Simulated assay, not measured.
Amino acid sequence: MKIKLKGRKAIVTGSTAGIGRATAEGLARAGASVVINGRKRERIDEAVRQMRQSFPQSDISGIVADLSTAEGANAFIAQAPDADILVNNVGTAFIRDYKSVEDIANIPDEDWLGLFQLNVMSGVRLTRHYLPRMVAKGWGRVVFVSSESAVNIPKEMLDYGMTKTAQLAVSRGFAEAVAGTGVTVNAVLPGPTRSEILGDFMEKQAEANGITQAEAEQGFLKTMRPTTLLQRFATTDEVANMIIYVCSAQASATSGAALRVDGGVVRFVA
């Protein structure tokens, strides 16, 4: 199967590194024009430079915007008012070492609300702008990058898990709203992935314990994700491959789905 997206404009939020960057590169490789996003001008400029060098046949541009705020989302939309593909990837997590129930109970409001604004409302704000335009054209793809933590809530990232579950509700609701229009809305659920956030955390854990990063990752899996069937961290490209497929014409019969790329961490058949 060869995915061809020439003539399509794709937006990938939070895409200067990690899963977002791998997704943006995959869409560019398929021929789409791609808008990447981040909060720092220097990171955007460097990512655009590298991608233009790697994919000279594709139109690559970047927009600096903090999508955790309504103002940031509006500023982004003003610079990119139209799109055929929207990948709501931007997000973050606080990885904590809980010792007791009191630690969980004392997660402050600002952490809950801050994660909700970035991980959930960024996608809501952009989707409610681009989705009607996709419907008017009779074609479009919206993808929310959720997590296996949406259905396998981790105590060490309880507030993060809450936002990822919310993304599933939002993506399914939007999919219901555009039924029969030629526009699809889906969610992709990665498992432990060697992305920037988790990769940096594992690197620090390795340094602190005098072990290699690979050993730290194996320790994390055995302790936190013992049900993994992959028995290793996924690469960002492995996750991006699923996202890119869902953005393609070949995925026209897939909508309202929560597609797992979790390495078998979640122990149910669905």
Rank of each mutant, 00 (worst) to 15 (best):
3 I>D: 03
5 L>V: 00
6 K>I: 04
7 G>T: 01
7 G>R: 05
9 K>A: 08
10 A>D: 00
12 V>M: 10
14 G>R: 14
14 G>E: 10
21 R>Y: 02
22 A>F: 13
26 G>T: 06
30 A>K: 01
32 A>F: 04
35 V>L: 03
36 I>E: 10
37 N>K: 15
39 R>S: 10
41 R>L: 15
43 R>W: 04
48 V>R: 13
51 M>Y: 05
52 R>E: 07
52 R>K: 12
55 F>H: 12
57 Q>M: 07
58 S>A: 09
61 S>Q: 12
61 S>M: 05
61 S>V: 00
67 L>N: 01
68 S>I: 01
69 T>R: 01
71 E>R: 08
72 G>W: 06
72 G>D: 07
73 A>G: 05
76 F>Y: 06
77 I>L: 13
80 A>E: 03
80 A>D: 04
81 P>W: 02
81 P>H: 06
85 I>S: 03
93 A>E: 13
100 S>H: 13
102 E>R: 15
103 D>T: 11
104 I>S: 13
110 E>W: 01
112 W>I: 08
113 L>N: 09
115 L>Q: 04
118 L>S: 01
122 S>H: 03
126 L>H: 10
127 T>S: 14
127 T>G: 09
130 Y>F: 00
130 Y>P: 01
135 V>S: 07
137 K>I: 07
140 G>C: 09
141 R>I: 05
143 V>F: 03
149 S>C: 15
152 N>V: 05
154 P>V: 10
155 K>L: 11
157 M>H: 02
158 L>M: 07
162 M>I: 05
162 M>E: 02
165 T>V: 09
175 A>M: 04
176 E>R: 14
176 E>Y: 11
176 E>S: 07
181 T>W: 11
181 T>Y: 08
182 G>N: 15
184 T>H: 15
185 V>F: 11
186 N>Q: 06
187 A>T: 01
196 E>F: 12
198 L>H: 09
198 L>I: 08
199 G>L: 13
200 D>A: 15
204 K>Y: 14
207 E>A: 07
207 E>G: 01
212 T>V: 03
213 Q>G: 04
218 Q>I: 08
219 G>S: 09
219 G>K: 10
221 L>I: 05
222 K>M: 10
227 T>I: 08
228 T>D: 04
231 Q>R: 13
234 A>V: 05
236 T>F: 10
244 I>R: 14
248 S>R: 12
248 S>Y: 12
250 Q>A: 07
260 R>W: 07
265 V>A: 08
266 V>T: 08
268 F>I: 03
